[in-house]
Design a binder for these strands. Sequence first.
RNA 1: GCCGGAGUAGCUCAGCGGUAGAGCAACGCUCUUGUAAAGCGUGGGUCGGGGGUUCGACUCCCCCCUCCGGCUCCA
Length: 648
Amino acid sequence: MKVHLPDGTALDLPAKATGADAAQAIGAGLARAALAVRVNGERRLRDLSAPLMDGDRLEIVTSRSPDVDGVSPLELIRHDAAHVLATAVTELYPGVKVSIGPPIDEGFYYDFDFPEGVRISDADFEAIEARMREHVKAAEPFERSDVSVAEALERFRSEDQDYKVELIEDLVRDEGVETVSLYRNGPFTDLCRGPHAPTTKSVRAFKLQSVAGAYWRGRSDRPMLTRVYGTAFLSREDLEAHLERLEQARARDHRKLGRELGLFMFSDLTPGAPLWQPPGTAVYNELTALWREENEARGYREVRTPILYDVELWKRSGHWEKYKDNMYFTNVEEREMGLKPMNCPAHVQLYKADRRSYRDLPIRMSEAGLVHRHEASGVLHGLLRVRAFTQDDAHIFCTEGQIEEEVLGCLDFGFFLYDLFGFTPRLELSTRPEQRIGDDAMWDRAEGALEGALRRREIQYELNEGDGAFYGPKIDLHMTDSLGRSWQLGTVQLDYSMPERFELEYTGADNSEHRPVMIHRALLGSFERFIGILTEHYAGEFPLWLAPVQVAVLPVADRHVGYAGRLSQEMRAAGVRRVEVDERSESVGRKIRDAELRKVPYMLVVGDEEEASGRVAVRRHRVGDLGAMEAGEFAARVAGEARERSAV
RNA sequence: GCCGGAGUAGCUCAGCGGUAGAGCAACGCUCUUGUAAAGCGUGGGUCGGGGGUUCGACUCCCCCCUCCGGCUCCA
């Protein structure tokens, strides 16, 4: 038979030849390097041992093969690694039940159910890794066998592998399968659809990383399994490089930098609520100032509303029914009050304070609004998941015809803000969920308006079907943190429900009453979460305009402190607001070192020469000595840089 | 909330049944300094909180709190 190779040539092979045979026919080196085959351009790879058919188009996949539709040799060997992990664990912990072990973006995991009383921690990794290495070294083949469902069930039942039994039963029920494939490597056999590399020696570079709990099938009403995370690469060097990257990422963790730079802290007495220290407050205030300025420029009117309301309000808004478990309540003099988890009902009160005409619309109301949400204790995470935070919130009350224009305005505003930081957010459009209010015609219009806005700007987005709020569809803006975890920042949501519940009205041109539509909009999301992401993005090296201390004046000796003080006054007068003088009787080297560690953008070294000539010796963070400059010139230049909010 | 791990000086960490340690920071003195750590000295801890076991607990056991990694959740 003939199979066709990517370069257009045909290869003559005996009948029933396999991918391995084909690789061997091409060359011994290729045969050694081959991991799997891609047949006829299929997305899913096949085992090297799978028989080929006459006329197949064949690609031999090696560690150097490129990704195709997200399927890569890396993914293959990570899956191999998961099997090797399970092999070692089943040997070391008799009675353990195995479940699933897939490759993931950065590695792989395997979920185990350990026998009663057995628990493992990363202290056990060394022993497990050692056992894994033995299997890798033995280059045990991955042998596939296709067996009947009955045989597979019999096998796993006899081994008390309940999870495998459940998986097979579900395969029969959901997909009507009659056979399943098993893969054996050494002493371990797993239910698996494959493919795998020819032998375990493909797993040459791996490392176990962490152990964590994970619900069976991701459902909190099912048993909690023990998940072991690891990573694997095609080479030792790649693995080392990856571990090195992780190390560096940890160094830019906002929680670490927040402590080191004195940005914010947490107290055990109010978990999940950041306390902002002076340097962090400086960043916070600059960000707020930017936000306020831009809101004004875009036709928003800022408001301020209380954080505590009678539960009556929350019942009316629907929060009581849907979210009371996540709200904080207090009862004083027999009046039940709730802390706001959202600002919208408050803004609705302001809307209702006046009769509204179609001429007033759209009304754009903005507020840096402090909200409290009782997040589950296990999910709190630095500034990225908190219980008390300030949203850069706004609500737009408009007519249905104005929706697309207003949504577009929100998105443009968002992109303006994100551009300022060099961020490229990932956009998600979430559409009607199963449980929702409003008729389909309403949803058609609402989703159409959001989609239309995205299309008009030719914006890339992911569709998240069924993930909208119960009252309307939404567009979310996501960013990832230093460890690659994705966080939602901004959101633009359409809401037909709140106006209904609060009976909002405006008088139309026809002199009759109409119901406005509300757009909920937060662009940064919350100042807390955004500063968390910003801190990691800049690795704590904030650009001048955001920097907690913009300029540190470093007198060479005590006698220069007076000159340094005069300089700082001058700079403040010129518009550089955050200037500090290091008045300690320390060496210049020490003062420089400390300012560098605090990541202060500019340092001014001033001694006899500078004082005599009215100049400053400028040093830039991480760049070094820039030479001397006339003091006034420096102040003007830096003030300009701060005013322009330039990126560097 | 669930599973696992961890909480020792302001920070980073060592110690682990027999009266609590280091480096940095802080404070004092000396030095008056030129582009990433001057020298000497001093003070500082209910060893997260509460119970228990023990002659004796930072150390062992139980409960709680907080943090870390995941899972679930995330208006």
